[in-house]
């Protein structure tokens, strides 16, 4: 069952993860914004961020996930809503659904800056993917806790089960 309850974790892994997490998070954001016209995008970025969270879970156990204090289902909702709002806002302003708008800004020092409305869509996807992966992780952690609490019988091999005899009969007939 869970060997990730914080008692048997590896120091090397948790220290590596501690160093790696900020880099991964930064990289995930980079991937998301790069996605407009280069390999990357919200899904890839979201997966990298989710991978960072999973690594943290492996490094420091369920406590690391719970300490985030974010409801993953909320993340899914926010991400989905953001992505849909981007598509629909184009519709409301009289354009085609999901049509993207480009703004060009000239902030001082940086030079020209191109902002595309579809990057909001990408951010939505990013949040959604992180939410989904976290929801799966939280579900597993909770199920693990449940299993650990109830301490079910030792894992039964398939041959112990009652209906196995007739199945092997059938198999031999095939």
């Amino acid at each position: 069952m869970s060997n990730l309850d914080g008692t048997r974790r590896s120091i090397i892994l948790s220290e590596t993860v501690n160093g790696l997490t900020p880099v991964l998070l930064l990289f995930s954001v980079f991937l998301t914004f790069r996605g407009h016209n280069a390999p990357g995008g919200g899904f890839a970025g979201g997966l990298v961020m989710a991978a960072a969270i999973i690594l943290r879970y492996l490094g420091s156990g369920p406590a690391g996930i719970r300490s985030l204090r974010i409801d993953p289902i909320m993340l899914m909702g926010i991400g989905l809503a953001l992505a849909i709002a981007t598509g629909t806002s184009a519709l409301l302003s009289g354009k085609g659904f999901l049509e993207s708008t480009i703004w060009k800004l000239h902030p001082p020092l940086i030079g020209e800056m191109k902002i595309v409305s579809s990057s909001v869509f990408d951010i939505g996807v990013h949040i959604l993917v992180v939410g989904v992966v976290m929801a799966i992780l939280v579900a597993f952690v909770e199920a693990d806790d449940e299993v650990a609490r109830s301490r079910p019988a030792v894992k039964r091999p398939a041959s112990d089960r009652s209906n196995d005899s007739d199945r092997s009969n059938e198999d031999s007939q095939r």
């Binding site: 909320m74 909702g77 926010i78 989905l80 809503a81 849909i84 709002a85 598509g87 629909t88 519709l91």
Partner: peptide, 16 residues
């Protein structure tokens, strides 16, 4: 598109 978007948006709100 609204026939697809409205239920999806509903799903988002329903998640929230």
């Amino acid at each position: 598109p609204l026939a697809i978007v409205i239920p999806l948006a509903g799903a988002a709100v329903s998640l929230l």
